[in-house]
């Protein structure tokens, strides 16, 4: 065994008991061997340390949800501060009766901010996408034209800002059908105005692939769907709660989208009934 090998095996616990004892004996009588051993020990420790640092950095980049209770407490505090502000202002105006008229305005804005706080608690946002088949132009609900002849691949960029302007290409059909249309839109608008992290989900569909007929993958932050998604409507549900999760709704079924999935994977059908009920509830909200 070479000196290098011997040191290496000693440091990685690969020597037999007798070999190890012989080696330790050798160290005491050979200062240069001892120095080499020390150096190797340092280097291996350094490699281990570097790997630990790397793993830690990897974990540090994993987004963890700020505990919801924190967010709510923050909101309550903000509301409390505003409340105190109104109290002080009211007192101020109380002692200056000529300005009393302005007080109701203030409490309206207080109401508004409370409403904002409520919608934050929900922390839920939906980004519906509808791809309308080219042959069904008579459907009034959306305006997205798909030019199938040109290309089977399409790109759409969906940003939360679209919920503020419901007249854009991307329209939620449930919003259109619902009588509480405007209220819902307001709620969503409030949510996005209140500093909820915005996200961009870019979706690409590919219906021409023979091998992957009902699959997905995330590449470069883009969602790629493989399958007959041109023929029917699909929706992406984005749920920001304690965790950030994405779901696909297609032909009355729900599928889980793992944003870390960079391999082409079959779309996993969600069967859990509790989860399904939740999803239905969120989709129909």
């Amino acid at each position: 065994m070479s000196k290098f090998e011997l040191i290496e095996k000693y440091l990685t616990n690969q020597l037999t008991e007798s070999e190890r004892m012989a080696f330790e004996e050798q160290i005491t009588s050979d200062p240069s061997l001892k120095a080499d051993l020390e150096l190797q020990k340092n280097i291996i420790q350094g490699i281990k340390k570097a790997r630990a640092v790397e793993l830690k950095a990897m974990l540090n980049n994993v987004p963890v949800a700020v505990p919801t209770s924190f967010a709510v407490t923050g909101m309550k505090m903000a509301a409390g501060v505003i409340g105190a502000g109104i109290l002080i202002t009211s007192l101020y105006y109380y002692y200056r009766p000529e300005s009393l008229k302005e007080v109701p305005n203030l409490s309206t804005s207080f109401q508004d901010s409370l409403q904002g706080a409520d919608s934050i608690k929900g922390l839920e946002k939906r980004i519906p996408i509808i791809v309308e088949p080219a042959e069904e132009n008579n459907q009034p609900i959306n305006k997205l034209k798909v030019d199938k002849e040109k290309d089977t691949r399409k790109n759409e960029i969906v940003t939360p800002s679209t919920v503020n302007q419901p007249k854009l290409d991307v329209v939620d059909p449930t919003l259109e059908l619902s009588s509480e249309n405007s209220q819902d839109t307001n709620l969503l608008a409030n949510t996005s105005n209140s500093g909820v992290a915005s996200s961009n989900i870019q979706v690409e569909t590919d219906s021409s692939n023979k091998k992957y007929n009902f699959h997905y993958q995330f590449s470069n932050g883009k969602l790629q769907l493989f399958g007959p998604f041109d023929n029917s409507l699909y929706e992406i549900l984005e749920i920001n709660g304690g965790t950030h999760s994405l779901f696909l709704f297609y032909r009355e079924n729900y599928y889980l989208l793992d944003e870390k999935q960079d391999q082409i994977t079959k779309l996993p059908l969600i069967k859990d009934s509790a989860l399904l009920n939740k999803l239905k509830e969120y989709r129909n909200k």
């Binding site: 949800a65 709660g241 304690g242 939740k278």
Partner: peptide, 11 residues
């Protein structure tokens, strides 16, 4: 808050 619960189930 409820979201976390069902996320675990699908894991």
């Amino acid at each position: 808050m409820a979201y976390r619960v069902f996320k675990l189930k699908s894991e």
